[in-house]
């Protein structure tokens, strides 16, 4: 087995532009779940809104990027308001139900035949990344070596754009969460009635959190679609949300570096397991009755799921969480 290729491949998957996109989506979710305690199960919806709010005007109507980019912000704020106004008064579990439904509505709409003229339907929207290509100081189609990996100039550039954005967002989240504003969010997570009793307008803070996290998620969606030069509704299925949940639990809920560490480890592990199984089945290192070449692809998620379950049992605070927080009963 070619271990060096397996490990390099896994490392690259942990840090490529797609991982940066996931990391942004997870950072937004971390603002909702980790800091505010808003159980948002529809983060994929925000990512989809971000991707298509950029792709549709540019690809369908030929807008310039500097008009389309503000539309990403406007659209995700509107989506947050639409979601939040009716549901933020309700208990956390209701928010979970409504958000997951809303995200699916968005995805089905983007995928529908009737609106193919607008969204591209199942083909998605392409040719909207001219902005990034023009911005790229590297040769877009040239090949570059990254360890044992060979990637084109565009993907390498998007890798830097993606992680640069992650760094900026992490800085913003860090600055906000050490402020009194972040303190109110955390108090809402712990007990919103207590915050209310101290004169905090809980509904407004929740809405601000939903908007901020949603915006970050939308930027993630934009990076996800831009790095593969195609906005596809299938990218924004519920699995995206659940991967992001896994990522932030892995890295530690309510930690600035949680989503970053979580993303790298998550995709590294998934790819490592996947490549190892792929090579092992191809070279008959694993008995065929257990795993064969047709089904090894599913095994990585089984293993990842087991690893996550083990993590939650043995280290519930995540890799970077504070052990002290788990000493006492949270509720």
């Amino acid at each position: 087995m070619n271990w060096s290729l397996i490990v390099w491949n896994a490392l690259y998957t942990g840090i490529n532009a797609a991982a940066a996109g996931y990391c942004l989506v997870a950072s937004g979710l971390n603002v909702h779940v980790g800091y505010t305690g808003l159980l948002n199960f529809g983060q994929a919806g925000f990512a989809a809104v971000g991707a298509y709010a950029f792709a549709i005007p540019v690809a369908t109507y030929g807008w310039e990027w500097y008009w389309a980019l503000p539309l990403v912000f406007v659209a995700s704020i509107l989506f947050a308001l639409l979601l939040g106004l009716p549901t933020l008064r309700l208990r956390a579990d209701y928010l979970a139900i409504v958000t997951i439904a809303a995200a699916e509505i968005v995805r089905f709409f983007l995928n529908s035949v009737r609106f193919t003229w607008l969204t591209g339907g199942s083909d998605g929207r392409n040719q909207f990344t001219g902005f990034f290509q023009d911005l790229n100081p590297l040769e877009n189609n040239a090949r570059y070596k990254l360890g044992a990996q060979s990637i084109d100039g565009y993907r390498l550039f998007m890798l830097f754009v993606g992680w640069g954005l992650v760094a900026l967002i992490a800085l913003l989240v860090w600055a906000l969460m050490r402020s009194p504003w972040g303190r109110v969010l955390k108090s809402i997570r712990e007990d919103e009635d207590a915050a209310r009793a101290l004169g905090k307008n809980v509904l407004m803070f929740k809405m601000q959190s939903l908007i901020l996290g949603g915006l970050i998620g939308s930027l993630g969606g934009l990076i996800l679609s831009s790095q593969q030069q195609s906005a596809q509704s299938g990218q924004f299925a519920t699995t995206l949300t659940f991967f992001c949940f896994t990522i932030i639990v892995l890295g530690g809920l309510g930690r600035v570096k949680g989503p970053i560490v979580g993303t790298i480890i998550f995709f590294f592990l998934i790819q490592l397991i996947d490549n190892t199984l792929e090579q092992a089945t191809r070279r008959d290192k694993i008995p065929e009755w257990l795993v064969d070449q047709n089904n090894y692809g599913q095994i990585k998620f089984v293993v990842a799921g087991l690893a996550l379950a083990a993590l939650v049992v043995f280290r519930p605070q995540g890799i970077f969480g504070d052990r002290r927080e788990q000493v006492f009963d949270v509720r």
């Binding site: 303190r183 955390k186 108090s187 712990e190 009635d193 101290l198 949270v330």
Partner: peptide, 24 residues
């Protein structure tokens, strides 16, 4: 309703009204 995962001091600070830093 003590806010379990905030420090005692942070619990106290939260109580103060009209804080400038509470604006987004």
């Amino acid at each position: 309703k003590s806010l379990a995962r905030l420090s005692v001091l942070e619990n106290m600070r939260l109580g103060a009204g009209s804080q400038r830093g509470e604006r987004l």
